[in-house]
Each structure stands twice: as structure tokens, then as C-alpha cells.
Design a protein around this nucleic acid. Structure first.
Lengths: 225, 225
DNA sequence: AGACTGTAAATTGTCGACAATTTTCAATAT
DNA sequence: ATATTGAAAATTGTCGACAATTTACAGTCT
């Protein structure tokens, strides 16, 4: 369990891409820093061509920005940027929930309910790991349940790594466990009732709450300095 | 007028990318066909490396699909695929309209109103070119008005070329002029009233109508064969 | 001192060649 | 005839070298 898209690296560029993405998302390569093709190719012991290809793919994930004849830099993180991403998440995942209510199979919905009740036990027993992995699992299933291939690709391959980068590096790993769990429950109920309208509304509110939660944290973080 | 993002080609790869994108969108390179790197590099008189880079960028626009060690193919068009894109458009452009109602400046809104009334004259005088260019112009302005850089990039650089490819190749260039014009008018009114909620609802309905219009055309097209 | 200029260094862009993999297809066996 | 095998052909992946462009910096001028 817990592996949705086992994107396995077949080529060298794949490996370089995955590795660089990990290092960028987790801050090992600093936000805003320049990506020197030469430097990286010696560091990873591959040719410049594969580094270039990896950088191109990072650019299409919006993790780095490239200027012709000048080079690529890791995107710089701003609170506004994170808020913008949450606006997009609200729109896309709201639609995903709507579609999931229409297109998920009965057995997929039962699995989703099962996931939730197993998570309920964990939360009750104070296994606090819920927030990160559990929340992600829940959202992934609904995204996949939309059965909209383009939407799935946009969210899974693109947006989520960006969001994760922001959350890791701006220190937004906070809990918000208990209320989020109830929100998940209501979303699943709407889906199992085959109520697309409500599923979308609830998902959007769920993401708005997350966004507000993060916004206040960002504000308090800034006031500490 | 009528050039929003004059994405100018500075490098050879840019030129190859723009040219290939044009040929794919307009069907000169057939949907579903294989893209041979060698073949294209002789055709365009550039090295394989620049063709490769262009193909990579086409892949990140979802215009081609690539499999490692096998090659790249232009995406195949299906009615379902087009419907999926319209679901995403509904979500993203709905959000764009909401944000535009919050973030567009008064002068930008006045310009938008000006655009609409100039288009009204054209429609009245039977200049039927409205549908394609005029509709696009309207939507672009609202997208830019959202002031959300990630959202703008997703729609302008990514989704719109895909949608255009479908519309061109499936022969969906039809009119729907008069009703669409009224819908535009109501959306602008909501924006100028600074009513994000209504702006989003109206934009979503506008896109739903487009979608339904296309769906019926697709159905009638199929029944002809 | 500060602004401008031109040359040198460094970095990115492009190329052709070689390596690895897939595909083709003829030869063979059942 | 069909299926299987294996070598050859074709295609993609990777590499190092060269070209074009940008950046750094020393020298000059006001």
C-alpha cells in the first residue's frame, strides 16, 4: 500500500530528475539557487545532456525557472506563491471530488471508507503520523477517482510536488488533524451518496481551511523576526 | 493588438518547439503519429538534440506522449479527452473569473467592457470572425486578470493549445456566437460589480454550455458515419 | 571615484559520434 | 503453416567537443 504512481526510473535522466526533484523539494538544493549544468554533471557523475534534460523536466513542473543563454534557478518561495497554489488546488480538487462522486466505483468508495476508519483508529490511539501521509493518501484516492487522466496528471505530477516543497521549506508540517479528519468524513459521505455538488463544495471548503490555517502560520512566522 | 504573450523564439529549440506545436495543433502532423527524432532533425535541418528538447517540451504540454527507449507519439484525440479538458477548463477558468473579480484593476475592467462593446458592433455587422479570436481574447483577459501566475501559466502555456488542437482537428470551429456574447456580457458585469461568487458561477456555466454544444456536435458527427 | 569599453573566462546551446535498447525479419524447428 | 530464435537494422539514450552567448574584470577615459 501507499504507492500510487511507482514512477520507476528507467533512464539516467529519470534518475537525475527524481533525485534533483527530491533535493529541491526537501530544500537540500536551496530555493532560489542557481543550477549549474557543469557542477551538477560532475556531482551526479553523468553527462551534461542528462542534467539538461532533468532540468527541463523540473521546469515543466514549475520547480525551476530557466532563462535562455543564462541558466536555471530553483523557484523562490513566497507566501503569495503558496496561496496561489492553494487557489489552484481548490479549483482542481473541488472538480476532482465532483467527478469522483460520479465516477468512483462502489468498491473504490468502500475502500476509501475503509481507509478513513483505519485512520480513525490511528488518530484515536494518538499515532500522530496521520497528517502528512494519511491526508495525502485520502486526496490521492479522490483525485484518481475522478477518472480524468489530464486532471490526475496535473495534480500528481505537477502541483503536489510544488505544494510539498512549499510546505516542507516554509515549515508548514503542522497538524490540524482532528478537524481535517471530520472534513474528510463528510466528503466521503457526499461521494458515497453520489452527490457531486456537495462533494465539490466540501472539498473546496476543506482546502480553504487548510489555506487559512497556513496563512495564519505564515503570518505568525513572519512576526517572529 | 491581439498578441498577449509574444513568446519569441531565442534559441533553435524554441523555434523547433513552436513550429512543431503549430504543426501538431493544426493537424499537419497527424494525431497519434510517431515523432522520429532523426526524421524531424533532417526535416528542420537541426541536430537531434534540439528536436529532442522540443519533443520534451511538447510532452510537458501534454501534446505528445513519450515512452523510454521507444519514442514519442502525438496524443490521440478522443471525444472523451476533449470533455475531460473542458472539465478542467471549467474548474480553472471559473477560479480565474472569481479572482479577476477581486484583482482586476478598474481600468482593466473598463478595457474589458470596451472590448465587449467593440465586439458587439462586429457581431451586429455580421463580421462573423468573432467566435474564434474574440472569444479567445475575452478569456485571455480574464485569465490574466486573475493575477495568479501559476494559473495563468497553466492555462496559457498548457491547456489552451491542447483545447485548440482538439477544436481544430475535430472540426469544432462552429459559431455559437450570439448566446456566447450575452454570456460574456453577464460575466463582465459580475466582475465589474466585484462579485467573485457570481463571476465564477457564470464563467463555469459559460464553459459548460460550450462543452454541451461541442458534445452534441461530436455526437452528430459520429452518427454521420 | 565612477562610468565606459573591450578582452578573457565561464556558461549555455548545438552538434556529431558512440552506446544501449528496441524493432525487424530471415532462418530454423515443431 | 506457425512459433521461436538470433542476428541485423533502426531508434533512442548518453557522451565529449565545439560554437554562441553571457558574465567577469582589467584597463581606460572623463
Amino acid at each position: 500500500m501507499m504507492s500510487f504512481f511507482d514512477e520507476q526510473a528507467v533512464t539516467s535522466s529519470d534518475k537525475a530528475f527524481f533525485r534533483m526533484r527530491k533535493e529541491i523539494v526537501e530544500g537540500e538544493i536551496a530555493a532560489g539557487s542557481k543550477l549549474s549544468e557543469m557542477e551538477l554533471s560532475t556531482k551526479y557523475e553523468v553527462s551534461r545532456a542528462v542534467v539538461r534534460e532533468a532540468i527541463n523536466r523540473l521546469e515543466s513542473c514549475h520547480l525551476v525557472e530557466r532563462k535562455a543563454n543564462v541558466g536555471a534557478r530553483v523557484v523562490t518561495l513566497t507566501p503569495e506563491g503558496l496561496m496561489e497554489l492553494y487557489q489552484i488546488r481548490e479549483a482542481l480538487e473541488g472538480m476532482a471530488a465532483r467527478l469522483a462522486a460520479q465516477h468512483m466505483t462502489d468498491s473504490e468508495i468502500r475502500d476509501l471508507e475503509g481507509l478513513l476508519s483505519s485512520q480513525f483508529d490511528e488518530v484515536k490511539n494518538q499515532h500522530s503520523y496521520y497528517q502528512e501521509a494519511g491526508d495525502l493518501d485520502f486526496h490521492y484516492r479522490i483525485i484518481l477517482g475522478s477518472k480524468n487522466a489530464s486532471l490526475i496528471s496535473m495534480l500528481v505530477n505537477g502541483l503536489y510536488h510544488l505544494v510539498r516543497m512549499y510546505r516542507v521549506q516554509l515549515g508548514m508540517a503542522g497538524p490540524r488533524v482532528t478537524t481535517a479528519f471530520d472534513e474528510h468524513k463528510h466528503i466521503v459521505r457526499a461521494i458515497s451518496n453520489r452527490d457531486p455538488e456537495l462533494a465539490e463544495i466540501l472539498m473546496r471548503r476543506h482546502i480553504q481551511y487548510s489555506k487559512n490555517n497556513i496563512a495564519t502560520k505564515l503570518a505568525s512566522n513572519q512576526s517572529h523576526f
